[in-house]
């Protein structure tokens, strides 16, 4: 299959700060998840893809054309930015129709497309309200509507699920998948692994401006599963609970923290620990206050992968 997006040795610095380094990629049709912790370079990469910033080295081609200062290519590209920024005084309808106008559609076509896009994101009832009165979720959806309204072949979505409630997330994920089924090319960035996992198996791992890996999501999932996890437990009698786990071979380490009601377990089998934990609480008649995984995030996985 011919790649839709090609980057070659793409590099970007902001003064002395590295934004992106030596990124050579080929992205084909379907959904590609761009995964990395905050500040990894995801937005920089997407801005370079959409020609909003200039690469210091390297090039970006979409459908065989260069992007920067090639405005005509944007009839094929829909971009949903990460920042929560709008023309606040406009209504949702004015926002979407106004931006559609910049695609040179006829008035009738603009209205038809705007109505369709607003219907897709469930904002048809709120379309005449000013954007400044929208909730965070609605703002996120109107941002998505402007990206899809002109029916682009390539969708570039920067953290599109931020601020959405669980139902909204599910709907948007379903919608993104439907675009994939239509044969479009979609790049979605996120710092939340589960969000990307719900959309695609095809991921690009980015960290500190470098592409760490590209390919199947099961690879990273396996790494996470074999990587020792830390689990923090806060309860009324932490020593009693901890003592029940000392003999378990999947427990690598137990630390008691300065807080009197807390201990931290390091385990290489998180599922087994979580299966056992509730019954221990019940047997010991101990009141549980909080269970958290301080390192169950992408940053921790990356730190582990790069050996920090």
């Amino acid at each position: 299959m011919n790649p839709v997006i090609k980057t070659r040795k793409l590099s970007k610095w902001y003064g002395n700060i590295l934004g992106l380094s030596d990124v050579t990629l080929k992205i084909e049709k379907g959904i590609t998840g761009l995964l990395g912790p905050n500040g990894a370079g995801k937005s920089t990469f997407l801005k370079l893809l959409t020609g909003q910033i200039k690469a210091n080295i390297g090039s970006v081609m979409i459908n065989g054309e260069k992007v920067r200062n090639n405005h005509r290519i944007f009839s094929q590209i829909g971009f949903c930015p990460e920042s929560d920024s709008f023309y606040e005084e406009m209504t949702g309808w004015e926002f979407v129709t106004g931006l559609l106008k910049l695609h040179h559609f006829s008035q009738a076509d603009i209205e038809k497309r705007a109505a369709k896009a607003l219907n897709i994101v469930d904002l048809e009832k709120a379309k005449d309200r000013r954007i400044k009165t929208y909730s965070r979720g609605m703002r996120q959806r109107i941002k998505f509507a402007q990206a899809i309204a002109h029916e682009p072949d390539v969708l570039i979505l920067d953290e599109p699920l931020n601020g959405l409630d669980p139902l909204g997330r599910r709907k948007l994920i379903r919608l993104i998948k439907s675009y994939r089924d239509e044969g479009k090319t979609i790049i979605v960035s996120s710092h939340v692994l589960s969000e990307i996992e719900a959309m695609t198996n095809n991921i690009i791992l980015i960290h500190q401006g470098k592409i760490f890996a590209q390919g199947d999501i099961h690879y990273i999932r396996d790494l996470i599963d074999t990587h020792p996890h830390m689990i923090s437990v806060t309860c009324s009698d932490p020593r009693k609970i901890a003592s029940r786990f000392v003999k378990e071979d999947y427990i690598l380490n137990i630390d008691f923290t300065e807080k009197k009601d807390n201990f931290v377990v390091k385990t290489n089998n998180r599922d087994q620990f979580f299966n056992r934990l509730p019954s221990v609480f019940i047997e010991e008649k101990t009141e549980v206050q909080e269970i958290t995984s301080p390192d169950d995030n992408l940053q921790a996985v990356f730190d582990y992968l790069i050996g920090e």
Partner: peptide
């Protein structure tokens, strides 16, 4: 300042 530039620079209009 309003960070709305990306809505305009990703449209098929010349700068």
């Amino acid at each position: 300042e309003g960070k709305t530039l990306s809505y305009l620079t990703t449209r098929p209009i010349s700068k």
